[in-house]
Every structure is written in C-alpha cells, then in structure tokens.
Amino acid sequence: MDLAGIYRAEYGRCVATLARLLGDINLAEEAVQDAFATAVEKWQEPPPNPGAWIVTTARNRAIDRLRRETTREAKHAQALLLYAQDEPEEVGPVRDDQLRLIFTCCHPALSPDARTALTLRLLGGLEVPEIARAYLVPEPTIQQRIVRAKKKIKEAGISYRVPHAHELPDRLPPVLTVLYLMFNEGYAATAGPEHIRTDLCAEAIRLARELAALMPDEPEVLGLLALLLLTEARRPARIGAGGELVLLADQDRTRWNRALIAEGHDLVRRCLRRNRPGPYQIQAAINAVHTDGDATDWRQVLALYDQLLAIAPTPIVALNRAVAVAEVHGPGLALAALEHVELPGYHRLPAARADLLARLGRTEEAAAAYAEAADLATNETERDYLQSRHTELTGRTP
C-alpha cells in the first residue's frame, strides 16, 4: 500500500475541502492529519476513493474535537450544523476548493513570504524542507513563517472566505508564485529517489487552468499556464531508460508532447497580442523558443533573458541567462557572468560553473565544482548525474 503516494496526491484536496466545510484552516489541517494517522492504523488496502474516506473521517474527527474541547452552546451548535449540512452553498467567483484556499491564504494581512509558504504547506502538502528548498532559505525560517501565518490568521480573525471579484487581482501575484513553486517541486523534486513528482505537476497545471478560466484577461495568468504546459511537454524525455537525468541538449525531441506544445505556443501568442510583458510571459516565451523546431535559437533565448533580467533581476534568472550566454558567446563570458551570482546552498550554481570550466579545459576546477554540486544536491537523480560527470573527468567517485 502506497500510503505516502496517497498522502501526496490527496492531502491538499482534503485540506481544501475540510477548510470549506469547517470554515477553519487550522482545524481542517489537524483533522486531515488525524485522518491519515487513522488510515495508517486501519487500512490494509486503500479504499476505492481514499480522498473521500479521508475527508469523511477528518470531518467526523473535527466534530468530535469540537464537542470535547468546549461545552459552549455556540460550539455545540456548530458541531450539530456540521452533522446536518451536506454541501454548503458556494458563493463568489472561485469554484474550485483548492483554488479558493490559495486565494484565502494569500490574504493581504499576511506577508508575501508567509502567504506562499503557508499555501505550499496546505495545498501542495509540501514539507518544510521542500518549501525551504523552493525559497533557497534555511528550514527554521520557513517553519517560523508558517507558524506566524497561522497565528496571524487566528489573531486577525481571517475567515475562510472567497474573495470578491474585485479583490482577485490584488491577490494574484502570490497565487501565481504558489502555483509556479508547486510545479517546480513536482518537476524537480527536492529530495528522494524520484526526480519528478507527476502528481504535483498535474495539480499545478489543473489549478493554473482553473485560474486562466477565472481570469482570462490577465496575461500573467496565461503566461504561467503556458510556461507550465511547455515545461511539462518536455518531461517524457527528461529521464532516460535507466532512470538517469537527460539534459535539454541530449533529449529526444520526438518524445515531447506536441499537443501541450501547440497549446502553450497558442497561449504565448495570445500574451504577445496583449503587449503587457511580465516575468511568467517571458519565461513562457523562452520555453516556446526551446520547443520550436528541431533546435533552440539561443540568440533569441538570450535576448529574452536580457529582457527578463531587466524586470526580474534575481540570481536564478542571472544563472539561467549565463547558460544562454555560453551557447551564444562561449563558456568564458558565461563564467564571467556568474562571478557575482550568489545562491548559497543551491547545487545548480556550482553545477553550471563545473560545466563551463570543463568546456574551457579547466578539468581540476570543474571536478571540484561537480563534487561541490553533488554534495549540495538532495535529489538522488540529480546527485547521480553530477557524480557521473565528476567521475568522467577524474576517473573516481567524489
């Protein structure tokens, strides 16, 4: 029985459904965790619909908890109401439980970092180390953000409420961030033997589609959806027959999903017609270039990264731009471009430096950089790839 897989697939949905039923995010999360603990004890085989079992069990546990913890008339009435109700009437423009919970967690009373950390925990079911990796910050920092966010929700009396239509645009940036980070964790898992978590990728794309249907005139929403689709289209070619990582230059393009590519390109064209460029649209355009034809036009990719760096000057963008610089102007200029990029603990920076050093014939330095990257990598597939590159250069395992 793959209870861990069921947890990853169902946790976010169950929390979102219970938050709507209970009107209390903290209670919903605790009830779902209790239900999964019960499943460990009772399941010999998963039921036909494990998510429904978890929701029903969690709901009943929440009612029991309300009755135990207080005898106040209001709480007793709340428990009775939960027994009596079937499905509360949905109000407002957001119909999907998980999408509604994302907007709820992205309340303006919470700090931007707290919003996304909390939502990734509740919706993605991501653990603190995974979220910390997505943010490139220490785990205690993420834990504190989540604790503070929950405390703020309780103290400020922030209810589980669907935002009105006029409130949606102000909540949009952190919502996009959450979906982007959720997909990234699925596409390159922080840790474990599996490099790709297809459940997270699929859920992020589903929610991005829901968001695009809800806000079809927001170009950054369309840009994000295009980015996810074009990235997902390449997934079948990213892992080789032996489970090894296959880089873009070595991928079999016939294995790419042409339907997703066509849909992504169409969305990019729609964004271009709006002429309101943003970070997700530019990243989508970069991926459109990668998936256009039989080879990547690296000059066009570099021009787009120059544009992206101008509006989103982050170390990650600078790192990715350096890869394009190497293809257009050579590894020497790319290595110089990385000289002032700082990403502590992020394995892809020394990995990029290692590749450039190897291309320059600086074998000893390249091997040291590959060893550093392998030490930092927490996903087994990526670590294996980096160690293999080190071995190719030195003849020994780091």
Rank of each mutant, 00 (worst) to 15 (best):
A117C: 14
T397V: 08
L245H: 15
A134D: 01
E127H: 12
A326N: 13
A368D: 14
E194V: 05
R383V: 04
T291K: 03
I54E: 00
Q300T: 12
H76V: 11
A134R: 09
Y370S: 08
G264V: 02
R321W: 00
R276N: 05
A377E: 02
A62S: 14
D96A: 13
Q281L: 11
I6G: 00
L349Y: 03
Q33D: 06
P169L: 10
F183I: 00
F36M: 08
T116N: 09
E382T: 02
Y385A: 09
L247A: 13
G345E: 05
Q283L: 13
P46N: 10
R383S: 05
R72A: 10
T104F: 13
E220L: 01
T198P: 04
T70Q: 11
R270S: 08
H290G: 01
A213L: 03
P350Y: 04
L272V: 07
R161C: 04
T231E: 11
T231D: 07
G23A: 11
Y160C: 06
A202S: 13
R270P: 01
N184M: 08
A377M: 10
E220D: 10
G361C: 15
I102L: 12
V15W: 00
R348W: 15
L343A: 06
I261W: 00
L176E: 03
A35E: 01
I286D: 04
E364Y: 06
L319Q: 15
I205P: 01
R362M: 12
R238K: 11
W43K: 07
L18T: 04
L230N: 02
R362Y: 10
K152E: 14
L66R: 03
M182S: 03
L181C: 03
Q85K: 12
A324Y: 03
Y7A: 11
P163I: 06
A322I: 00
R348K: 12
D297L: 08
G278N: 12
P174L: 05
H290A: 06
R145V: 00
R148N: 13
A19M: 12
I153M: 12
T291W: 01
W298F: 09
D97A: 13
L110D: 01
I153C: 09
Q283E: 08
L225D: 00
G124R: 04
H107V: 15
A295S: 14
E41S: 14
L207G: 02
A226E: 03
A337T: 07
L386Q: 11
W298L: 07
A318P: 12
D292Q: 10
G240C: 09
P174Y: 04
G223Q: 03
N184T: 07
R121F: 14
G395F: 06
T296N: 06
V341T: 14
